[in-house]
Design a binder for these strands. Sequence first.
DNA 1: TTTTATTTGTCCGTATGTATC
DNA 2: GGATACATACGGACAAATAAA
Lengths: 251, 251
Amino acid sequence: MTRRTAAAKRAETKAAAGVALWRRIADDLEQSIAQGTFKAGTKLPAETEIAERFGVNRHTVRRAIAALAERGFVRAERGSGTYVEADRIAYPIRRRTRFSEIVGGAGHAVGGRLVASSIENANGDIARRLKLKSGARVIRMERVRQADGIPIVASTSWLPADRFPNAARVYAMSSNSMTRMLANFGVRDFTRESTRVTAAVAEAADAESLKLALGRPLLVVESVDADTDCVPILTTRSRFASDRVALVLET
Amino acid sequence: MTRRTAAAKRAETKAAAGVALWRRIADDLEQSIAQGTFKAGTKLPAETEIAERFGVNRHTVRRAIAALAERGFVRAERGSGTYVEADRIAYPIRRRTRFSEIVGGAGHAVGGRLVASSIENANGDIARRLKLKSGARVIRMERVRQADGIPIVASTSWLPADRFPNAARVYAMSSNSMTRMLANFGVRDFTRESTRVTAAVAEAADAESLKLALGRPLLVVESVDADTDCVPILTTRSRFASDRVALVLET
DNA sequence: TTTTATTTGTCCGTATGTATC
DNA sequence: GGATACATACGGACAAATAAA
């Protein structure tokens, strides 16, 4: 009885301060993460322990943690603990957008591999983006690219087969770099023509190649790149692991 | 036995043509949707029926439909059917980004409402974005905005309380328009300072206000807007229903 | 391999302050 | 003022997943 009254009083004074208790706790935990008290990849103390530390009920802590999880700061795993998520890599979208420059420039080891490739007929969508006739021959390349060994993005690219014969083979001989591959075909530079962003949840294939749990959010970027004469040479559908990347738009 | 051999043969000849059977079917269905043979909101024929029409096994059709679902063209509902999704509204991100101009300009009826508002102390993140001291008083506004009555985006905005006292009340008296509300405070124009895009899956609160199923993908846009003197006046965290919107970046 | 302890997830309930009609 | 709904906070119990013994 006395304890409950005390708790009610405390709730009252906090509410009088204008901010709910769980929100204050969420802010406090967020600050601890930002300041490095809780480092990325490590476990947060157990809910019961945090509750004891703040002198509140476990449910109040749960509400705070849920708020942080929703914003991507932590990830709760049943039976194991609540983990601090790594900072998302900032991925600027510019006219010249190169994965290796962005990720390498941020101090990460850049990796990648060609998963598959094939030659096929462009469907309406691909043909329109590349300004080809529907049914024109295009080369499709499936790639996964990594930062520090962690998969960041799975992408499917299409190129006109006429202009870039054996693109996949040349790509493999250009140290898995699209920029160098295109240079081997005489493309000195290329820039972003259009970019369209949506979101999706990871299905089996992308979850597997990105090493993500099913249902995790993906950023889907559909882009068209063109050469210096503004002729489209490459269209790509990239699926970024949203847990690991944030797109930064430059206006 | 003989049937399987025939099926294997057929698969083989199609593979020899360069494209997997399910991919050809997916392209065909996609074209039917694009041409309006299957209209938005209607059901696709049953998988068995499609399978019969193409003369393939139902599993091949399932693979094709899964590919379309992953790209957001259709949405399969167990026990009900596979529905054609409406075209996503193209939402350009520019220096001057206004929901009503974009959505209204695209020919949709613009709607919106203020769900909640409060005054609170800025945490580190909000304070940094608005260039305030940590703990400064800010006004938080929760809004949901709609196109043709369909919720498109749920957003949380923060404004400095010093400069915009009673912002929420003024907002309500400015026909629920942020632009007009700011104009009432003497802000003639404002432009986008920074934009950061991630993805998330809908939790209970956003699912409810956006009328989405739990676990559907969201585009999360964190933005800062500044007045003509480049003083930050507004930071917003918007959750777009990704099924209904695509961000278009202008480079 | 089995058991045990730890940790999160979910459900039941009670009480109180606040906002709205 | 009253009735009602809602958000907040607390307490307890158990299930489910994981990790360690």
